[in-house]
Design a protein around this nucleic acid. Structure first.
Length: 600
RNA sequence: GCCGACGUAGCGCAAUUGGCAGCGCAUCCGAUUUGUAAUCGGACGGUUAUCGGUUCAAGUCCGAUCGUCGGCUCCA
């Protein structure tokens, strides 16, 4: 949470304590073990180790008890204590003891991450409830607004976030200063639900999931595929313009290649099991890099003069995502990356980074996803990484200086790197303010050497190129999921699967509609005719609900005049216009890739 | 994978303590030929996710499996 939310921070932090007290009172003394309860964006949570699972029916009594505690208006009192005193206080609270250990050693915070300085151990007391807590809090429980508080959900959460630890029960709540703010927040959640791409995907007939196909594998309808096609064509054309070349490398690869590239050792958790074909062991591709490097090698000797060589590919990759982590289109098992591998010299890293950056920026701007931050993802202490400190240091330095040379602001995240190198990840905010990791630019000094990729340098000697991995929209599926929600299903004209719906008023206007449809199709405009025996109003309503950008209504007047009554999805009835003008207007809007954003 | 909730017609939902499985929309058929967000009437549609158990009787209770949803480090 940011600093200017100090008062909300205190409110939510305090609400977490009040909730913990309420939960403890729901059970017999000593039955509830409390873990941690921080404020978070929009609210707070507290993790408990409970004698039984909670159900949604448990929330109202807890909430009721919280209001009573608030009404009792206990002061929050801070007390600094020694580690020994802290241990005595929480003798029967194992999680708190573990936290105290971490604090006392000065080494670890509550998640087991290293701390800079040895902190002061402090308690906060409110009434009968004592918690190990750094604070700050509101002064009295009465400063919490009971009408601006709501418990939201129950979830499981591992102690310290590690699946090796015990699963605790987490209760999420939300808290605000005023009831109106709470209402607003709940309203935002409702809006987000309406835009849920899984719901819109079904309503707009874009994609489906089937038990017969398997989890995490979307099936795209003609309309959904048209969206994919438009998105991919756009990036493809732009890549071509920027000097990237497209290649194609199929979906299966001999396992041995992944042994040499390092995937088998470092990425096998995400890979599907091997397929045995007599003496051959094959794998579904989880990444393109080894294939692109192999292609580079097969194409013969490469001179330094050919570099940088940029191989782009829209390829569907297969990744084993954990069951519980699958989520609509944003987390699937068949992932189509708009991938690219640039083979270049160390000197070229900076300019290649700049090129990729320009491409990424142009694409994100087109989608009105221009509010993004860049995360420099580095190797962490744990996790699987190819061990080669020298190359990691080189790659990290190179990426940092490329970021700096291009005047890019970024923040550092340790432990987020790929197994072969550091990344610059683009994290964009959608119209609802949610973060999505989309584009990525990665520097890899490791894989080319492992696979023996070489070029002949100016000195006539073989050298190992640097590999830059780069994705613009990241992958088609997730990006589509994000933009469905971002646009609330109302795609800009250039992207819309059906751009124009022709609405003949009566059956006798169908021939004119067909004639008009052909005219528009000849201009490359995607058009459909609603020839049902329905009333015009009903056809308009359906086209509007399908979020079709333009409706052309045609009756006797239009047929006689060679015109169409234009209705815009966003602006309503625009009146009758000659077809020539309609075509000009549509083509201009398509070419401009104009976007009309809807408020969240 | 783990914790919890859920799974009734293509979609959205009903069904009393266990007692004949229904409504709306969509679909199909018929009538209507309509001027900027829903024309009227009729018909079709189900092994209640799957498998097993309890019971005279299961959508409802129990178990397993499959699937979906909410979560699983936004720093005590």
């Amino acid at each position: 949470m940011s600093h200017n939310d100090d008062s909300l921070y205190k409110i939510r932090h305090s609400a977490a304590h009040v909730m913990a007290q309420a939960v403890m009172e729901l059970f017999a003394p000593g039955e509830v073990k409390i873990a941690i309860g921080p404020p978070i964006e929009d609210g707070f949570y507290y993790d408990f180790d409970l004698p039984r699972p909670l159900t949604p029916d448990d929330l109202p009594p807890i909430e009721k008890r919280m209001r009573q505690i608030i009404a009792q208006n206990h002061p929050f009192v801070r007390r600094e204590v020694s580690a020994a005193a802290a241990r005595a206080q929480f003798a029967d609270q194992p999680y708190k003891l573990e936290l105290i250990d971490g604090l006392e050693k000065g080494g670890l915070d509550e998640y087991g991450n290293p701390l800079q300085e040895k902190p002061v151990i402090s308690f906060y007391l409110d009434g009968p409830f004592v918690d190990l807590c750094r604070g700050p809090h509101v002064e009295r429980t009465g400063q919490l607004n009971p009408a601006a508080l709501k418990l939201m959900s129950i979830a499981g959460a591992y102690w310290r976030g590690s699946e090796k630890n015990k699963m605790l029960t987490r209760i999420y709540g939300t808290a605000w200063q005023t009831a109106a703010q709470l209402e607003e927040h709940l309203h935002r959640l409702e809006e987000a639900k309406k835009r849920d791409h899984r719901k819109l995907g079904r309503e707009l007939g874009l994609f489906y999931f089937s038990d017969d196909i398997g989890p995490g594998i979307p099936l795209f309808t003609p309309r959904g595929e048209m969206l994919r096609h438009q998105m991919e064509s756009y990036v493809r054309d732009l890549q071509t313009k920027y000097g990237y070349q497209h290649v194609w490398t199929a979906h299966m690869v001999k396992e041995d290649l992944y042994r040499r590239s390092g995937h088998l050792e470092n990425y096998s958790d995400v890979m599907y099991p091997p397929m045995q074909d007599e003496e051959l062991t094959m794998r579904l591709k989880p990444m393109n890099c080894p294939s692109h490097m192999t292609l580079f090698k097969e194409m013969g000797m490469h001179s330094y003069r050919e570099l940088p060589l940029r191989f782009a590919e829209f390829c569907t990759l297969y990744r084993y995502e954990k069951r519980g982590e699958l989520n609509g289109l944003t987390r699937v098992r068949a992932v189509t990356q708009d991938d690219c591998h640039v083979f270049c010299t160390e000197e070229q890293i900076e300019s290649e980074f700049a090129l990729a950056l320009r491409l990424v920026r142009e694409v994100l701007n087109t989608y009105h996803l221009s509010d993004y931050k860049i995360r420099l993802s580095l190797r962490g202490e744990q996790g699987k990484y190819v061990q080669d400190d020298e190359k990691w240091a080189k790659a990290t330095t190179a990426l940092k200086s490329a970021l700096d040379a291009n005047d890019v602001d970024y923040f550092v995240a340790e432990g987020e790197a790929a197994f072969y190198g550091p990344k610059a990840d683009f994290i964009a905010k959608d119209v609802l303010g949610r973060d999505w990791q989309l584009s990525t630019i990665q520097v890899d000094f490791i894989q080319p050497a492992r696979l023996g990729v070489e070029y002949i340098g100016e000195d006539g000697q073989p050298h190992t190129p640097v590999l830059i991995h780069r994705a613009v929209t990241g992958c088609t599926e997730r990006f589509l999921g994000v933009i469905i929600e971002h646009f609330a299903g109302a795609f800009p004209l250039w992207l819309s699967p059906v751009q124009v719906m022709l609405i003949p008023i009566a059956d006798r206007h169908i021939p004119y509609a067909q004639q008009t449809a052909q005219r528009l199709k000849d201009e490359g405009i995607r058009v459909e005719i609603d020839a049902r025996a329905e009333r015009m109003n009903s056809k308009i309503r359906d086209a509007q609900l399908q979020k079709t950008p333009y409706m052309l209504v045609m009756g006797d007047r239009e047929a006689a005049a060679g015109a169409a009554a234009v209705r815009s999805r966003d602006a309503g009835d625009l009146g009758s216009k000659p077809l020539d003008e309609v075509v000009r207007m549509l083509k201009e809007e398509i070419a401009s890739k104009r976007v009309v954003m809807r408020a969240a």
